[in-house]
């Protein structure tokens, strides 16, 4: 048995979890179809990180400011892993993919692109997406692709907390005051049309899941419903009876917000492609 800095009783270290740099250093090179799948997942995480980051200095309490920022950092971490790995297929870096792709080249789902709205609306998005991501990563840990499996194994611990955070707030807002109940229910109503597309399959996903690499999204729906329904019920909220939004193929063709998010996220990198300091 050997001891590392992480075992010290008194010294605080960053721990020894894998980093995106480890993946590149290990020489992992994603096949193109796996890279596209990693881009689906990585773009979801990146867009959500960008949205959640907007809460910094705007949350209802300072403590909640930090909580949402922590979750945003976790998501940004997932994005770094997944986009680093995706980029390896085309000799591109995570930054190439994050900052220099156009709106049409992103593959995020629309749920994570939706506006923050008030705190209730953000918590509605967090509850839906965290539960979906938890089911996804739990299964992706068994992926035949070793890199995806190790990223999922790290991410699932973080997402477990995101689920808890969103569920705790859903209970408090839903079963709180009349005003908090109204806002939480409206938040769910706003987000619900984008739930179905999380579970859409396509040819790429079908092919990769047959080879044990990807998780077929449609197979996650049952466990998602089984997890979210009791939380909403306990919070005295109802599942909104609304049709799914039209489109939902991750192409960006039907995305209202993607371009606006990218404009803000990419402007500095595009204006100073050689980098800038100040």
């Amino acid at each position: 048995m050997s001891f590392t800095a992480g075992d010290s009783a008194t010294k605080i270290s960053a721990g020894n979890a894998i980093t995106p740099e480890d993946i590149i250093a290990a020489g992992a090179k994603a096949p193109e179809d796996v890279a596209t799948y990693a881009m689906y997942l990585g773009d979801d995480a990146l867009m959500l990180a960008q949205r959640l980051g907007h809460w910094i200095s705007r949350a209802p309490e300072m403590e909640e400011d930090v909580a949402l920022a922590n979750i945003a950092q976790d998501q940004l971490g997932h994005a770094r892993f997944l986009l680093s790995y995706a980029g390896s297929a085309w000799d591109q870096t995570e930054d190439d993919l994050a900052y220099f792709r156009t709106e049409e080249q992103f593959r995020s789902c629309r749920l994570v692109e939706q506006e923050n709205g008030d705190f209730g609306q953000t918590i509605a998005r967090q509850l839906i997406f965290s539960l979906y991501q938890y089911e996804l990563f739990t299964r992706l840990m068994d992926s035949a692709d070793e890199t995806l499996a190790s990223v999922a194994a790290k991410a699932v611990k973080e997402v477990t907390y995101h689920v808890d955070h969103a569920a705790q707030w859903t209970l408090r807002l839903g079963d709180g005051t009349d005003e908090s109940h109204r806002r939480m229910q409206e938040g769910l109503y706003y987000m619900w049309p984008y739930v179905d597309e999380l579970f859409n399959d396509d040819d790429l996903l079908r092919d990769l899941s047959e080879r044990g690499i990807a998780v077929l999204p449609s197979t996650l729906r049952e466990s998602f419903d089984a997890r979210i329904e009791p939380i909403l019920e306990q919070a005295t909220l109802t599942v909104p009876d609304v049709p799914g939004a039209w489109g939902g193929d991750r192409s960006g063709n039907f995305s209202e917000h993607r371009g606006h998010i990218l404009a803000e996220m990419q402007v500095l990198a595009r204006q100073f492609p050689q980098g800038v300091t100040w």
Binding site: G6, I12, E63, E64, V66, A67, N70
Partner: peptide
């Protein structure tokens, strides 16, 4: 909140 504020650096 304690987890988020006081254990975020391991």
């Amino acid at each position: 909140n304690a987890r988020d504020l006081y254990t975020r650096r391991n």
